[in-house]
């Protein structure tokens, strides 16, 4: 495992990279998001696992993305994600609509190194109709007809997320947020930001070890205290609801979004 600065970690993601990011409740690296925006990178492709909020919205608004595959982008109780919505209306971003279990299942296919995975549901939806890469097939083991959809495996170039701690071997503690493990297993490599680097091995303690993503999957780690802000992180700190509300309001216009982003890039709250 390499221990990198946030800027060097962000530089590992280049135009065309397919990056898996987790949902707001899981462990979102807003610190790496800030570094990506600051780097001026363009043409990133994002797969939301399985949805996103402010992270995808900021990357869209800052012009970093060429493509977004997602089950939803939303600010939750604060309503629509404004930059996502604006891009969808302008047609300025390739949006591939999917559904939550399809993302999880297609990542599981990559975990197993198999080319596709079948999934129930989907038949008769316009989601399926729009996805030329999904195939309506037959259950080969059924006695009669049993149509079922086959999804190609999703193999991200990078799994990018934030967690509470990593050790010197690149082992990362994720607790019960097992979708982070799925993302990391499926991806070619994981880039992780953490609240702190600890000197003792996280695998030494059997209680901790069950919640560890082994360093086997982790290419690089950057230390980023409060790195999920303004989102929250597990038991460490709650979501900054006031800041999210300021974002939701500001990002309704391009100018408001730019003003919010300038402060965010400086690591400051829009209230400061």
């Amino acid at each position: 495992m390499e221990l990198l600065s946030l800027d060097k970690l962000a530089a590992r993601m280049t135009p065309g990279s397919l990056i898996a990011i987790p949902a707001d409740y899981s462990g979102v690296s807003m610190a790496a998001t800030r570094a990506l925006v600051a780097s001026g990178v363009r043409g990133l492709r994002i797969i939301c696992v399985p949805t996103s909020g402010i992270q995808a919205d900021v990357l869209i608004g800052a012009g970093c993305l060429a493509e977004l595959e997602t089950s939803a982008v939303t600010l939750g109780e604060l309503g629509l994600a404004p930059r996502f919505t604006a891009a969808a209306k302008a047609g300025s971003l390739t949006i591939r609509d999917t559904t939550c279990p399809a993302v999880h299942a297609a990542l599981q296919a990559s975990e197993k190194g198999i080319p596709f995975i079948p999934l129930r549901g989907l038949i008769g939806t316009d989601i399926l109709r729009q996805r030329a890469d999904w195939k309506l097939a037959e259950n080969p083991f059924a006695d009669g007809a049993d149509p079922i959809v086959y999804l190609p495996a999703i193999k991200p170039d990078v799994a990018l997320f934030h967690a509470t701690k990593a050790d010197r071997d690149g082992n990362v503690w994720i607790g019960r947020r097992r979708e982070l493990a799925t993302m990391a297993h499926a991806a070619v490599r994981s880039l992780v930001t953490v609240e702190e680097i600890v000197d003792v091995s996280l695998l030494a303690d059997e209680t901790l070890a069950a919640g560890v993503l082994p360093g086997l999957y982790v290419e690089a780690v950057a230390e980023a205290p409060r790195g999920a802000w303004p989102l929250g992180l597990q038991d460490l700190y709650p979501t900054d609801d006031a800041e999210l509300a300021r974002y939701a309001e500001a990002a309704r216009t391009e100018a408001g979004f730019r003003a919010w982003l300038d402060r965010f890039l400086d690591g400051r709250s829009a209230a400061a």
């Binding site: 089950s71 629509l80 609509d97 559904t99 939550c100 549901g121 399926l128």
Partner: peptide
């Protein structure tokens, strides 16, 4: 926002 898990 998007379909979430509804299609399943």
């Amino acid at each position: 926002p998007g379909s979430f898990g509804s299609a399943y």
